[in-house]
Design a binder for these strands. Structure first.
Lengths: 234, 234
DNA sequence: ATAAATTTGTTGTAAAAACAACATTTTTTA
DNA sequence: TAAAAAATGTTGTTTTTACAACAAATTTAT
């Protein structure tokens, strides 16, 4: 009964699985095998519903198949902060699982209607006895995800560790410039989001951007930026 | 010839390998097998010598077996910043390898005499055909390392994204308090290092700490801190 | 197409941080 | 153990930032 239900679910949601980084290269049959192997469950959540509750026992890693959610942490003093946003294809819990956490360190809350895949953490992170063929690949994909997240965090830290708003901006903009190999590029944030990303006051940042434009260091319009490296380099 | 040399090297350095997180559970024989599998090379570096050069083609992941080093990045504008410190047992290059980087994104420089193990990144991250028995475990250990690094970075980001020095301090101190499950604890930094970690001016931070002490929020002496939660919570 | 909501740029003010300079204490090392 | 080096605490000054308030522009929804 449960067995059949799972088969049906995978048939129903295979396209969503296929679209994720961690299952992208698996066939429907292989997905089925893994679904049993990882003891998966699909579940839908409404907007504002709690998908994961901070402090509860951590049995599963989740994969967001549809919708958006955010990771929220409440510290010992009761301060609540949004740790990150999750979108389609993102996972939560991998780091904790590998680091040996027994309890969820954050809550995950649906920003809109979500479809979530729960996977048993032990089954997922330990290559299985019967070596279901694609497990190694899933682990590698998982590792890539964590590695990429690491790189993003390190980038952000580089910017945030600059003292002034201007330095933060230049650190950010030049990193984008480096990535795109161009000094004319589009950023993935609007101004408000950028201020939020850099943890600075929006109006102060907007002000600083204006100054930099006046000084001829940069030019910008909406998300389109132009870095005048000749003015910046020595 | 080379073959014999490698055997000798592993015999010579087995204790160092054993002491690292990624090879801790492997026997000498298994280490030998893996060393061939990963095409390893041991190499020593003097103080201030460059172990890895930013921009060069990335073939290897390195594991620091003896000594200390630091990771240094030069951005597009020519600004140099220290990304992190490496100590015995730390690896560099794993994230880049999994993220598919072709070139080293940073330089690694020895702070003192170092012994370094170079491992071919492809061999290391792809479970091998002949399935040398411990490879899976090494990959899992590697993943744990990256996962833990991720958690640390996220922690630091939480603190740095606070706007005021006081908030940064409280965020940091309460996270330690949470980890140690006590409001009386020792921090792993001295005051100067803490200011550096939190990216704030040392003297300003010292001043802020004094104020907080006067206000009865905290008490401290050297690295020993006491958080008065009752004063902090609402 | 219009109204409503959101984002953006600007300004002035108050608060906070960086910076510099220095005396004192602590730690290191010769 | 003495001398040197490094870390720490304190203060005053200058610079920068956050914050608040608001008008203008842009985007979204109806």
């Amino acid at each position: 009964m449960l067995f059949l239900q799972q088969i049906y679910e995978i048939m129903e949601y295979f396209n969503e699985l296929k679209a994720t980084k961690i299952f992208s290269s698996a066939s429907e049959f292989e997905c089925q095998a893994m679904m049993f192997c990882f003891k998966t469950r699909f579940k839908t959540f409404d907007k504002n519903e709690k998908i994961i509750t901070q402090g509860e026992r951590m049995e599963d890693i989740i994969l967001l198949l549809k919708g958006c959610a955010y990771v929220e942490n409440t510290d010992i003093l009761g301060n609540i902060s949004i740790v990150m946003q999750l979108k389609k294809g993102d996972v939560y819990g991998v780091e904790g699982a590998y680091a040996g956490d027994d309890y969820y360190k954050d809550s995950v809350i649906a920003t809109e209607k979500c479809l979530v895949l729960f996977m048993n953490k032990h089954r997922l992170i330990n290559p299985c006895e019967n070596r279901c063929k694609r497990h190694d690949l899933v682990i590698k994909n998982l590792m890539r995800l964590v590695a990429e997240s690491n790189i993003k965090l390190l980038d952000k830290l580089t910017h945030l560790s600059k003292k002034s708003t201007r330095e933060k901006l230049l650190s950010y903009l030049s990193s984008i410039s480096e990535k795109t190999k161009s000094n004319y590029f589009e950023i993935p944030f609007n101004i408000t989001e950028l201020a939020n990303y850099l943890s600075v006051d929006r109006s102060a940042m907007s002000n600083e951007l204006s100054k930099m434009k006046k000084e001829g260091l940069i030019d910008y319009d909406k998300r389109q930026f132009h870095l005048f490296n000749n003015k910046l380099k020595f």
